[in-house]
Each structure stands twice: as C-alpha cells, then as structure tokens.
Design a protein around this nucleic acid. Structure first.
Lengths: 137, 137
DNA sequence: CTATTTATAACTAATTTGGTTATATTATAG
DNA sequence: CTATAATATAACCAAATTAGTTATAAATAG
C-alpha cells in the first residue's frame, strides 16, 4: 500500500508548488496548513531534498524552496522516493520469476495490473495537484 | 499490498480448476504440488469454502472439490475475500473524502489509479490461470 | 549571543503479515 | 467398532512494517 508518508510528501510538494515560483515557506507553515505533524514534515523534507526537488536555508527567515519543475515531478516519483520500489505483490520485487519455474502466468497478471496503476501515477504531476486546490487526504 | 495469503488462495483455486470438473483433491496434495505449507492451505480453504467456491468432504478418501465456475471467479474476488477490501491508500477505505474538506483532488487520482488496477484484476479469472499452467509465485 | 530554522538519526508503540499450533469433527477402511 | 485420514475452526506467535516522536546538531539573522 502507498503509505501515509508518501501521501504527505505529495501534499507537501503540492503545497510548495501552490506558492509563487521560488517562494520560501517554512516547515511549520506547511505543517499547520496541511494538518501534518511538524516532525513528519521535517522528516519528509529531508527525502525531498535528497531527490533534488527542494532546497532549504536555515536560520531565521529560512525555509524551503521548490527547486524542481513541479510539472516534471510525477506521483510515481514521489511514492518511490518515500516508500521505495512499488510492488502490489511480493513476487514483483524480484526481477526474475519466482522459484525455478520458467514462466508464471500469475506474475504476468500482477505485473499488468500494477503497470496499469502506475500509468495513472506517472501521468499525474505535482503541478496539476497544485492547481486544483488540494486538501490533505 | 496484495498479501501472500491472497496469492496462495489464487494458486489453490487455480490448482483445483486444473483438475477435471468435480474432481476431489486433498489439501496435502495441493500443498505439496504448489509448495505451500499444508497449514496455510487448510486455513485458506476455510475462506474459500465460506465464499462458496469449494466444498470439502472429511475422512479418508475425502478432500476438496471446486463447486463454483472457475470462469466466474475473478482475481479481485479472491483477493477481497482473503485480504478484505482493497485500497492502495488509507483514504480510499472511507467512503467520504477525508477531513471536512469538500473535495480532494488527491483522492481522485488514487481512486483512478486503483480502479485502473482493479479493472485488470476483475478481468482475470481462475479459469484462465488454470489453463495456462501456472506455477507458484 | 540567542532565537529560529533546517538537517539527520535513532527510537518507539501499534498494526499487519506470514505462518504455526491445537483441538474438534467427520467418514472410511478394515 | 476402532484406528486413521481427512476437513474445520480458532487461537496463537514472531517478525516486519508503519506512523510518528524524540534528540541532537548545524547554520544564520538580528
């Protein structure tokens, strides 16, 4: 399942993208507006920075800035950054079909179902979410 | 995530469906052929029976019979029976949009992504799996 | 200097998962 | 009629995951 942390990360990015380009917003502001624990916001921003999407400046009047193009960040990107590789099923995590069997029709179906889901998540961008006024979910 | 138990349940049904219609197979046979713990097979058969898909007869020479049409059992049915309601995201479990907000674009996207996945799982039946010789996954 | 803010890591309680154990029930073979 | 093979059902348990907290360090404005 897509974790709450991944959802939060999406919301945080959308919140940042909803401000004028290059604007600085503090973790606290994001947390309060989106009703997420400040601790969590801070924890997640660490990952978003690592991904190259945000940058932070410390000290008073510091805060977070979105440095990537929100139209280029997909929901899939964010989920994978926070939750790690996506897999609707245990067997989709390994590259090769499970066991020693040569083929496995089940794997094919899981794979198809998952890809179908990922297609949607690859199309949805932070930009779009920021435009439609999103609420926390 | 779709649990291993749900995967096993699918495999068990496919195994049953791969035998001549009405044939009786023991839990032990299924377990050995599919490399699943007998205990688990037994535990899962309990659910499959509850769903009306199988019936068992006890005693020596007893075993399990598939009583439903395998073409009418979809993967989604099996997953929901074993794992409960499917939700790729926390917020998809409740009926109404989260919090008090009136609309939530995120929910819309999660919902779309999930439905896209479910479409595949609703189309795939035990029958199809039984025909393609499946292995355990 | 001191308050404010990001940055990072370690920790924790609650839940979920995958699987086992235990016990009861039924039916057949001999 | 008894031993045995099989299903049926429930309770249990260890390991992993999740959601969130706590602690501490570093930078910077004023």
């Amino acid at each position: 399942m897509i974790t709450k942390k991944a959802e939060y990360a999406v919301i945080i990015l959308a919140e940042l993208a909803s401000h004028p380009k290059g604007a600085i917003v503090t973790s606290k502001e994001i947390a309060e507006k989106r009703l997420i624990s400040v601790n969590l916001v801070v924890q997640l921003l660490s990952l978003l920075k690592e991904a190259g999407w945000t940058s932070g400046t410390r000290g008073p009047s510091g805060g977070i800035r979105l440095v990537a193009d929100p139209a280029a960040i997909t929901l899939k990107d964010v989920i994978e950054k926070v939750d790690g590789p996506i897999g609707i099923t245990r067997c989709l995590f390994s590259d090769k079909p499970c066991g020693d069997r040569t083929h496995c029709s089940l794997r094919g179906i899981w794979s198809k179902a998952q890809q179908s889901m990922l297609d949607v998540l690859e199309e949805a961008t932070i930009q779009e979410l920021a435009q439609a006024a999103i609420s926390d979910c």
